[in-house]
Write a protein that binds this DNA or RNA. Structure first.
Lengths: 225, 225
DNA sequence: ATATTGAAAATTGTCGACAATTTACGGTCT
DNA sequence: AGACCGTAAATTGTCGACAATTTTCAATAT
């Protein structure tokens, strides 16, 4: 599985930022908890300045919220917040699919079709590790295919980490494999037919389905407690 | 004219950030120019640390780009970049209009209609200062009406400053008043009819028109040199 | 007992200095 | 003259200390 944006840590703040982002997304640092600069600087064995810079970057990703002279807290996860993110995803990735249908090269489209057929084998053979990585790969390729640098950055550097945080911590690692696979197939077909309108509509619908799927899970989780 | 998000500077970094953002957006700090931390710290009479933090925040807004161990530069303005931003605006503000049709309160809609009719008087009486402030006011109200906090933050704190930078520096302060006013009217009607689909379509079209208008101006600017 | 005040403790904001890296420049070699 | 290399200058990255603000908590008054 390839990594798309090899964001390699060069500076010490980079390392702290990546590490903290990972720990926040995976819930190792609890949602809503306070981020003490001193505490973190002793924990990571770096100065407060690099922790501060890392926290600033996390704030830019909307992973933490900061109040002047008070400090930073990890964002709190609410079902409403996740629904809001999916509304944004629908808008942005819909546009990405539209642009991908216009701007992806023929070879990129062929690669995308290749990815899908290889995933089809996996799904058929019950290799259920499709969902997380495979789905991500598919969406990333279309986002990159939009060739819109700002859009790519917004989605890859910003929104996706937030969505992953929600999905991990609210236990939304669900299957929804087979139907999603068909949806992917139709989206790719629209792109290879160079049909931007349809590509956008299908992508938006795909994300709406995913959103609805999550909404029902959230509702049933609620009722269990 | 009301200010919507009273982002008031409490800390010294805030002040530096707001000031630098203003100077970059208005072109007082040239696009593409290097941002020397030392130079700026002497210019603003603050320590390098606060300049650094301000630059980090500017990077998060996509107003400057930074390379490790090298420094930060103001982003360079290309016509393609502006077109990319308008594609994102189309997607996000289209969604905002859709959500506004669902979530704005009746009084908020009435206020919006009031704004429009007051602007109609101004336009009729040839007060041509409508464009910048009036257009902004209209769009902000709809964005806020979406009630989607993440979406609001993305647009208000992020995208709009970038768009304004482009418009100011590429000399896109054009009129396009009268037709845009009609478009606004139709969008408000769709919202007051609680028709999300139509509100989104009309908003997207409105932004597409604006984009096309700018694209032709850019092309004619190009040919003048 | 509750509310209020005020000092102490803890936390964040700001600063100047040092370390690490990049850039500029002069000298040498072909 | 032009390319290559190494040292010096400049710039960014990191650190610890101090200043300003917030929070804590005990003492006092109602």
């Amino acid at each position: 599985m390839m990594s798309f944006f090899d964001e390699q840590a060069v500076t010490s703040s980079d390392k702290a930022f990546f590490r903290m982002r990972k720990e926040i997304v995976e819930g190792e640092i609890a949602a809503g908890s306070k981020l003490s600069e001193m505490e973190l600087s002793t924990k990571y064995e770096v100065s407060r300045a690099v922790v501060r810079e890392a926290i600033n970057r996390l704030e830019a990703c909307h992973l933490v919220e900061r109040k002047a002279n008070v400090g930073a807290r990890v964002v709190t996860l609410t079902p409403e917040g996740l629904m809001e993110l999916y509304q944004i995803r629908e808008a942005l990735e819909g546009m990405a699919a539209r642009l991908a249908a216009q701007h992806m090269t023929d070879t990129e489209i062929q690669d995308l079709e290749g990815l899908l057929s290889s995933q089809f084998d996996e799904v058929k053979n019950q290799h259920s590790y499709y969902q997380e990585a495979g789905d991500l790969d598919f969406h990333y390729r279309i986002i990159l295919g939009s060739k819109n640098a700002s859009l790519i950055s917004m989605l890859v550097n910003g929104l996706y980490h937030l969505v992953r945080m929600y999905r991990v911590q609210l236990g939304m690692a669900g299957p929804r494999v087979t139907t999603a696979f068909d949806e992917h197939k139709h989206i790719v077909r629209a792109i290879s037919n160079r049909d931007p309108e349809l590509a956008e509509i299908l992508m938006r619908r795909h994300i709406q389905y995913s959103k609805n799927n999550i909404a029902t899970k959230l509702a049933s989780n609620q009722s269990h407690f």
